[in-house]
């Protein structure tokens, strides 16, 4: 494979890469700057030097609903992911091991790709009739529509990599197939379970569409709350910046930890490199 031996092309390549890194980082940096600008200076695009203040952060974390929204988002994502792992892991194992599930495997992928537009209407109507609009349960059910398939698909690739002889051995050692599954195979795919869980958590945490339509004051999630900072009055900008950062920082940290497992998970045992 060619590499940049020529110092000039090497310099250009490095420059291009740095440019990309800059393009990714700059929005975060600027939003952070905005979050520590005094409210009186909010929204001044030419301002780089000022005396920073934490007033926006204090305001948002102490005097707003944002902590409550975080709690909602967190609880919904956590429950969604736990249910998904509980139902998805045995299924992914079955898809990986048993013959006759080849097409079922791909129907999981199809479910994962289903546009929310077609599911939201029935969800809304059913929850409306059940008086469950503005409840966490409704949002969890809605999030299961994409987190459950994603988590299942994600895990198939990990189970595919565990040698079948491992459960054969356990069955010979005196365990049932199900015991072999949870005593031997599940521990062997622990990194995959973690990565799938984190991935599903991030997806649920990031969702706006379902949460927007199915939550209200009692169950509003963070993305919906952020969307509420839609007005661009100068005083609000700093708070919006804080809310954005609060939503973004945990997912960035989480997803960084699963980077090396992502490929296998997204490929789901279908992409053979």
């Amino acid at each position: 494979m060619f590499s940049f031996r020529n110092p000039i092309s090497r310099a250009f390549a490095t420059l291009a890469l740095l440019l990309a890194v800059f393009a990714v980082l700059f929005p975060f940096v600027w939003v952070f700057m905005e979050s520590i600008k005094p409210a009186s200076l909010g929204g001044r695009p030419d301002l780089w030097v000022f005396s920073p203040t934490w007033e926006n952060w204090n305001e948002v974390t102490l005097n707003s609903d944002v902590p409550f929204n975080i709690l909602n988002s967190f609880a919904i994502a956590l429950v969604t992911v736990l249910i998904s792992l509980l139902c998805g892991a045995p299924a992914a194992y079955a898809f990986s091991r048993f013959r006759g599930f080849e097409s079922a495997r791909y129907s999981i992928l199809a479910a994962e790709m289903m546009p929310p537009a077609i599911l939201i209407l029935p969800f809304f109507l059913v929850l409306y009739h059940l008086k469950l609009i503005d409840s966490q349960i409704g949002v969890i059910a809605a999030h299961l529509t994409f987190v459950l398939p994603v988590v299942t698909w994600f895990l198939i690739g990990f189970f595919d990599e565990v040698p079948r002889d491992l459960e054969n051995q356990a069955m010979i050692d005196g365990y049932t197939r199900f015991q072999a599954f949870y005593k031997v195979i599940l521990p062997a795919v622990r990194p995959g379970l973690g990565a799938a869980g984190v991935f599903g958590f991030v997806l649920s945490w990031n969702d706006l569409f379902y949460a927007l339509l199915l939550t209200g004051n009692e169950s509003r999630t963070l993305p919906v709350a952020i969307a509420g900072y839609w007005t661009f009055r100068g005083v609000e900008l700093g708070k919006m910046a804080v809310a954005i950062l609060i939503a973004v920082i945990p997912v960035l940290a989480l997803s960084h930890s699963i980077q090396k497992h992502l490929i296998r998970g997204i490929g789901g045992g279908a992409v053979k490199y």
């Binding site: 990714v24 945490w205 990031n206 706006l208 969307a227 900072y229 661009f232 954005i244 939503a247 960035l252």
Partner: peptide, 21 residues
Amino acid sequence: SILLAPMFVTPIAVGLMFRFL
């Protein structure tokens, strides 16, 4: 790791961020 970061960011936050930028 920096270049991979945006795909995890809450899309509504991305939208607002760029609306502002």
